[in-house]
Structure formats: C-alpha cells, structure tokens
Design a protein around this nucleic acid. Structure first.
Lengths: 194, 194
DNA sequence: AATGATTTAGGACGATTGTCCTATTTTGAG
DNA sequence: CTCAAAATAGGACAATCGTCCTAAATCATT
C-alpha cells in the first residue's frame, strides 16, 4: 500500500470533518489540527477552502463508485444490489445517528450557502440515482425506473433524517424492512412479464 | 393588529434568515441589516445568539401549533387532517426547492454543530409526530400509530430533501400522490374493524 | 557533494465574528 | 413638566476566519 501523500491526507481529514461538523463550520485550523500540517502549508496544495471541498466531493464520488462496484461484484441480481443500497442505513447507523446521511446533509448545507459546489455535490446523488435506475431497468421496470429510483432515494433520505433526530432503533429496523418489502412487491409486479 | 415589537421583529427576521442561510452562517450583521436595528441594540433584547435561536424555535413551535389547529378546524376527519400535513409539501414547494424543509434542515444543522438547542429543535419534529399519532389513533390504528406517524414524517422529509436537490416537479407530484395512496390503503385496512 | 525545485513552517494581513460597554435618545408614570 | 426606566446607537474588544507571504527545510537529479 502506497503511503498517503500530504494532499490526500488533507482531503481525507477534511472529508471526515465536513461530514461531522459541516463544511462551513469546519475551519482551516480544525483541519490543520487533525492533520498536524501547518496552516501555511495548505496553500501549497489548495488555493482556497472551496478547492478542498471540490477535492472532497471528488473523493466521495470515487468512493461511492467503488462501493457500487463492490455491490455489483457481490451480486449479479439487480434486486439484491438495490438491497445493498437500502441496507447501508443499517450498516452506517452509528454515523447516521450522529451526523446524518453524508450525501443529503452536504447538499442541504450547500443549498443554504448558495455555494458554487452545489452542482458537484448533487452529482453524488445523481450517481446513486442513475445506478438505481439501471437496476430497475434490469429488473424490467423500464418506464418507471426513474421514479422508482428516486422513490428509494427519498425513502432512505427520510429514514436517515428521522433516525438522526430521534435515534429510534425500532423505527430504523421497521422502516428498512418496509422498504425491502416494497422492493419485493415492486419487483414481483413485473416478474410475470418475463 | 398590534404593531410588531422590536424583539418580535428580530425573531421574525432571524427565523427567515436561519431558514434561508442556516443558523451558523447567519450573522448579527445579517439580522441587523434586514431589521434596521443597530447591532448594539440586540443585546438589550438577547444576550447571546443562542438565545435568538431559542426564541426562533419557540416561534416555530407556536406557528406549527397554530397551523395544526387550523387543520383541525378545517377538517373533523383524521384522515383529512393527515392529508393536510402531506400536502404542505406542495403548498410550500417553492421554499422547499430553495431551502429544504425548515424542520429537517435545522435539526440536521444543529446535530452537526453539536448545539445545545438540538433538543428544542427536535420538539418541532415531536410536535408533528405526536399530532400525527393522535390522528392515526383516531382512525383506529392504535398499536401502529407511532410507527405510522414516523413513516409519514420520514417519507415527507425524504421528499423534501430530494426535491431540494433535483427540483423535479414530476417527482414531487408523484411522491405526494403515492403517499396519499398509502394513507388510503393504511386507513382502509382497519375501517373493516369499525 | 552540489544545485534547483518542491514542500513545509509560521507569522502577518484585513475582514468578520459574537460579545460588551457607554453614551444618547425615547418612553411612560407621577 | 419631571425624572427614572427602557430602548437605541455606535464604537471597542478579543478571537477567529480565509488568505497570503517569505524564509527554512527537504527532496530529487546530476
């Protein structure tokens, strides 16, 4: 494993801090503290704070894509792949309880800040969206794929938001199973067409 | 109509700005600018910025309660009342497109800031939650009321988040009708018990 | 070993932050 | 009208923000 460069280290730490504290509320001093890098050195790698944000979003896109590829490798069945997406809610429950969904909270924050990187951040959402659409098309739900994909996205976003607020495990468990049930029903409506 | 006091004016303006820009990103200068009140005068009404936040949350609780009372006055049928809640998504679509759901985005932000007012902000969510539960109990779904209420909350939160991101009207329309359909189905399962 | 380029450290900058203080003005009760 | 109380204005504060600059240290290539 190659050693992490300074630039990569900055991005990794910033990624976590932006998730935990929010982009706007995270200062250079915060990042410097956790990286043990002097403040002045930042500007040799990034000219502005916004450039760090762009790099963080790029990293998240890369990591998201890698995660999706893992799901694809682990399962050749589209329905199972969608399940992989839904069950992140359970796998990441501890972090979601503390800081919400990393995708949804970032886009919400950037929307409020009217930040230029809004479009870039939305791409992470789009990445999930388009991938889910492909899965639904694969199942045979071509016409409805777009709305079905966004339905899954919306449901999981809402679950994350509410779990972040109330941190009720019974709620989380119930909602995940409801969403999985919905997936089964939705798939079974067209398996007759095969 | 009695004239708005200075204190009330500060809270009203702060309420809007916190919603539009976020709490952390809104400065005293911002509020002062929109209220035409000198910065120094603030501290005669509020000792800290956090106290303004508490007052804003209090106002939102009051307004939420008033809105709920309107729904109750407008409809004696519990199902219709729940519909009133669901269709806020459509009535407030323009603001949601720009700034997201005022309840969800505030609680998310305060969670990231580890802010003391987190508990107060969550009360707004709880207010909707408990009220929705009462409606479901009124329908006769006593045992499931809690999970049904939170299901509605989660769904609407997710719809708001995604509409804020993609601003797709077809998505919004479709999801609202899906949620209304769900409500019909959920209610009809127990009308047999009457 | 020598030299040029890259990387790092740390201070300085102007602007802005929330907070506080002190005059001045406005208000309301006697 | 009087005068104490409440409300307002505006400057000062220490701290922090993102940004920039320069000197020192490290690296890589010859």
């Amino acid at each position: 494993m190659t050693k992490e460069t300074t630039r990569e280290r900055i991005i990794t730490v910033a990624d976590n801090l932006f998730y935990e504290q929010g982009f706007d509320h995270t200062s250079f001093a915060d990042i410097a503290g956790e990286t043990s890098i002097s403040r002045g050195n930042f500007y040799h790698h990034f000219k502005t704070k916004d450039q760090i944000l762009e790099a963080v979003i790029e990293l998240r896109l890369k990591n998201t894509l890698a995660m999706i590829k893992e799901w694809e490798a682990a399962s050749h069945c589209a329905k199972e792949r969608i399940k992989s997406y839904i069950t992140i809610l359970d796998r990441n429950k501890n972090k979601i309880a503390k800081h919400g969904c990393p995708v949804g909270t970032l886009t919400s924050e950037l929307a409020k800040l009217s930040h230029d990187a809004q479009g870039s951040a939305n791409k992470i959402f789009s990445l999930f969206d388009e991938w889910l659409q492909i899965q639904f098309i694969d199942i045979g739900l071509n016409d409805e794929a777009e709305l079905l994909s966004q339905h899954v996205l919306a449901r999981s976003q809402g679950i994350a938001t509410l779990y972040n607020t109330f941190q009720s495990d019974t709620f989380l468990k119930k909602e995940i199973s409801l969403l999985l049930e919905w997936l089964e029903e939705t798939c079974s409506t067209t398996t007759a067409n095969h």
